[in-house]
Amino acid sequence: MACFCVIFFFLLGSCALTNATDTETAILIVVDQSGMGDFQKIQDAIDAVPSNNSQLFYIQVNPGIYKEKILVPADKPFITLGGTNADNTIISWNDSSDIFQSPTFTVLASDFLGRQITIQNSYGSGAKAVALRVSGDRVRFSGCRILSHQDTLLDDTGRHYYTNCYIEGDVDFIFGNAASLYERCHLHSLSKENGAITAQSRGSAEEDTGFVFLGCKITGVNSGTALLGRPWGPYARVVFAYTYMSSVILPQGWDDWGDSSKQETTYLGQYRCYGPGAKTGRRVPWSHTLTAQEAEPFMSKDLIDGKTWIRSAPTKFRRFSYPNPAKIGGR
């Protein structure tokens, strides 16, 4: 087993909480399919946010099933998009093209917050069908449901924080090369045989990226049908800590994806996990069962520099005023 020091994991440069001038007050835009809001489509509301904005915008999405393919472009930071309940606020699309073209919802912007929404790719099994792609920095999802089968969540690049989210899929359904903390999330495997929950793609020892699952829960439809992960990149880094693992997890835990050289460079392991799938006695010998000292760098938001940028949803609102009323959709 390769000797590895984790003390430098996620040593990312500090940044200001946000460049927005006011982090409590947001301009409110309401999306309502019945025409009672400012727009009937979510994408129209996002398009209405000025480019290179420095003020928070809150897009309130009223209950409904929104059949849309959504893009939050890189020049529109500081957007919060929130529903009232993820069970009744659903964004759904059906696409099985490649991982960058198929996502139902793509975030390229920084300082984005998604709350209480369901993001779904309804294509089904048997092909790459991404529900959510996150390629912006300082992005948070809270209380969301992210649903597909293969490649559900492309956790691509940047620093990300997922809390109290439900993520469902069967093959490599959390994948990419972001620096991400998943806290109190529920991961549900739909795999029937040898599916993988994670496929992390860190490509070199110099990259401060990886996935940490802290206080999460893993369930599945069938016992002994899911791996904790396999390394997409040669230096893949994934840690599960204080996580309940049901019997869905295969005893070996991890797979080297047919490349034994990755056994020397990856860092895949667990710390104080519990449940029938958490037993380490039959894990692959190149995985890690962390000591308290080894686990310490993974136990807080410091690993994504979170204290400098993770923010709550705004609490004060001003209604959006339109320079041209003819641009208002759904009226």
Rank of each mutant, 00 (worst) to 15 (best):
T209F: 03
Y271P: 01
F141Q: 01
A205I: 13
G253W: 13
K279T: 15
E183M: 06
I146T: 05
W232E: 13
I90Q: 10
L132V: 10
S300W: 13
S312T: 03
L153P: 02
R319A: 14
G126D: 12
E168V: 12
T308N: 15
S34A: 08
G124Y: 12
R159K: 13
S204W: 09
A131S: 08
A109C: 08
T266D: 08
K67F: 12
Q120E: 15
A292S: 11
L56Y: 05
F78I: 00
E294A: 14
P234M: 10
V49D: 00
Y66T: 02
L113D: 00
D156A: 04
I119E: 01
N164A: 10
T104S: 05
D151P: 00
F8R: 08
R311N: 06
G220L: 06
F240M: 01
T308S: 10
G114D: 00
G158K: 03
V221P: 07
P276C: 04
V61E: 02
L12H: 07
A178H: 10
L81D: 03
D137T: 04
G114Y: 00
S287L: 07
C144V: 08
Y58A: 03
I27K: 06
R159L: 11
V239H: 03
F173R: 05
G126E: 11
S34T: 13
F10P: 02
T198P: 02
S300H: 09
V284L: 13
H160S: 04
K327P: 01
H160F: 03
C165K: 08
T89Q: 08
M1H: 10
A129T: 11
T104K: 00
T266I: 11
L56W: 02
G195N: 07
G258V: 06
L113A: 00
N324A: 11
D38P: 04
Q60R: 15
A2D: 15
Q40E: 10
D305V: 03
Y162S: 06
H288E: 06
I7D: 13
S312M: 07
N62A: 12
A199T: 00
I146R: 10
I46E: 00
Q200R: 09
T106M: 03
S54V: 14
A48F: 11
E183I: 06
T104W: 00
S96W: 04
L228T: 01
F211H: 14
N121Q: 07
T280D: 14
Y58H: 06
T289M: 02
W309R: 03
K67N: 13
G233L: 04
G124F: 07
A199E: 15
Y166E: 12
W257S: 04
